[in-house]
Nucleic acid binder design. Sequence first.
DNA 1: TGAATGATTTACT
DNA 2: GTAAATCATTCAA
Length: 221
Amino acid sequence: MSEALPLEPNRAERSVLAGKLVTRTFYSRPVLEVARQCIGKVLVRSNPQGVVAGRIVEAEAYRGPEDRAAHSFGGRRTRRTEAMFGRAGVAYVFFVYGMHWHLNLVAGNVGEPHAVLIRGVEPLVGVELMAARRKMDAKRDALTNGPGKLCVAFAITGDDYGADLCRRGPLYLLEGPAPRRIARSPRIGVDYAGSWAARPWRFFDPTSRYVSKPRPAQRLA
DNA sequence: TGAATGATTTACT
DNA sequence: GTAAATCATTCAA
């Protein structure tokens, strides 16, 4: 991308990156708790272009096999969903609408196909690199306020499928200050799931600018 | 083998 | 506000 990058992390950025790794036991719990408590944790991406990191401000729980909104509904186990059936603390990455990647954290015990979709992140480290990838100004909320947008900013693709988030590799999660408040609502974009769509399994920090904006169709509901 | 669709984003009227 | 972009995955046949 840009030849001027990467920049060395500054003092504040180094402080963020010095945080403790989130351990696998955190993920090996009920998916609703994982979704709620991952708000405030810090997602880190490290690759040859540089390091970017951001605070998770919005996430949704998907609890297969009973949850009709989950890709693992009905116990569907395929090449795509396989990661959700394995150990917790790895990345479940998938491609939708012919153009967007989405990142999930695998949760629960082995054999329980649960996952947490990351929908919004507040930039903390490498904002200029994110802006270059997004081809927009670094100050805009739209940089990382949606599941597909943040995957572009973090350069997350199918290559990250199954990545272990519990060690300092290309993609991992660090502890961060807990938010003052956590709000919840129904999940976005899962109207096909009948009554499951009404369950308040979306969690977010209501004070953050980087929570995703509802689409027109959502606004009417 | 083919048709339908989606855990969305962007551009445009 | 609406529509286009664009393709892996899924399911039916």
